[in-house]
């Protein structure tokens, strides 16, 4: 079973590497990181903050592009081109197919993250060597912690891509649902915090809406918990307890989505 799964992971990864969009995403991120060398000159003192902001945003943006274009393509291509019949005729179970695809995508994102982390390290190292005096409030450890947290977010987001691919027949709908989930996941915390604020307490809101939002906040993933970019830019310490909490959250949430996807995909009639 393990060998079959590894074969699927490797095949998905290989297929992903062949995607030309990958080169575009890579070049865009590198240009953004390179641009940070020039942009920091426009700021007064907190050059460390600006360079970390730009580099972490470049990594996050590259991850999003990979997820919404490369991952989605890898998931939906088999369905759209009907190559799924060919794949499933091999001695794989449908569950193995789902997990293999997902882990293959995550392996691709992991390699992309490694390369981007290496590039951003080089960029920041260069800026730091030029403006050492402005990097007193900078910490490599916090910088890497933020990248780790960012990577965790893509576990959930890609699990959603897999989940939506199993319940929809069109890649466009999967894309639409995934982007909506991402936006909702990033903003749900702010909405809930606003509703808990004294300003919102004064507003007359129906009980139904209140309870709907209460339920939604547990159903939707809270993706903002993985956003440690601003904290990392100021080298504010992030505890290992927090990191383990978000790691467990990510693993549990992704597992729920993948198990659901497997169950749905096992029962799905492929036409």
């Amino acid at each position: 079973m393990g060998r079959k799964l590894f074969a699927l992971i490797f095949l998905t990864f290989k297929e992903g590497v062949r995607d030309r969009a990958l080169v575009g995403v890579g070049l865009f991120s590198l240009a953004m990181m390179g641009g940070s060398v020039m942009v920091v000159n426009f700021f007064m003192r907190e050059l460390h903050k600006v360079s970390v902001d730009i580099n972490l945003s470049a990594i996050a943006f590259a991850g999003l592009l990979l997820t919404f274009f490369v991952s989605l393509n890898l998931m939906s291509k088999d369905m759209d081109k009907h190559t799924i019949y060919c794949v499933l005729s091999k001695p794989f179970s449908r569950t193995q197919y789902i997990w293999g695809k997902y882990l293959g995508i995550m392996f691709l994102i992991f390699i992309a993250f490694c390369i981007l982390t290496l590039c951003s390290t080089a960029t920041i190292f260069f800026i730091k060597s030029q403006y050492e005096v402005y990097f007193k409030e900078f910490s490599w450890l916090e910088f890497y912690k933020a990248i780790y947290a960012q990577f965790l977010m893509f576990f959930i987001l890609n699990a959603f891509i897999v989940f939506y691919s199993t319940i929809t027949t069109s890649s466009f709908i999967t894309l639409l649902f995934s982007i909506s989930t991402y936006i909702a996941g990033q903003t749900i915390e702010e909405v809930v915090l606003f509703l808990q604020s004294s300003q919102a307490m004064e507003m007359v809101m129906s009980k139904t809406i209140g309870s709907i939002i209460g339920i939604v906040q547990y159903v939707l993933p809270n993706l903002s918990v993985f956003d440690l970019k601003v904290r990392s830019a100021h080298a504010l310490p992030i505890s290992f307890e927090y990191l383990s909490a978000i790691t467990f959250y990510c693993l549990i949430y992704s597992s729920v989505l993948l198990i659901s996807s497997s169950l749905i995909f096992n029962r799905r009639e492929l036409k």
């Binding site: 426009f42 700021f43 730009i54 945003s57 991402y182 903003t187 956003d227 970019k229």
Partner: peptide, 25 residues
């Protein structure tokens, strides 16, 4: 900021840099 914060999604840091740069310029 209630709107900007939501629109900035997870890119609040870089958006704050951009807005600050715009103001200083």
């Amino acid at each position: 900021s209630k709107i900007t914060g939501v629109l900035a999604l997870e890119f609040k840091g870089i958006v704050s840099d951009f807005l600050f740069l715009k103001t200083t310029t």
